[in-house]
Amino acid sequence: MKIKSGFVIREIAGQYMAVPVGERVNDLHGMIALNETGAFIWNLLENEQTEDDLAKALIEEYDVSYEDALEAVKEFHELLIREQVLEATNT
């Protein structure tokens, strides 16, 4: 999975958000509020990643088990699908 182009991650007052820019504003009006972990994953998704890749990246960055990390990644993946911010895949 990979995030569509056209988003800028902002960090303001301790809060994170993904803001659509340029033509991407046609797809999303407003912004997507993220927590720190969500922003971390979002930045990784500028390149193609699998759920396993992301879970492994999380356990390197944070003190969590692989199982907890994978569950968090799956939840976040569902959010990204709902918000339609992932590039279409060929599978």
């Binding site: 800028v8 991650i9 902002r10 803001v19 820019v21 340029g22 504003v25 407003g30 912004m31």
Partner: peptide, 11 residues
């Protein structure tokens, strides 16, 4: 001006 601002990450 607007075109360049629209790429920066503002609402």
């Amino acid at each position: 001006l607007y075109t360049k601002l629209s790429e920066m990450g503002f609402l």
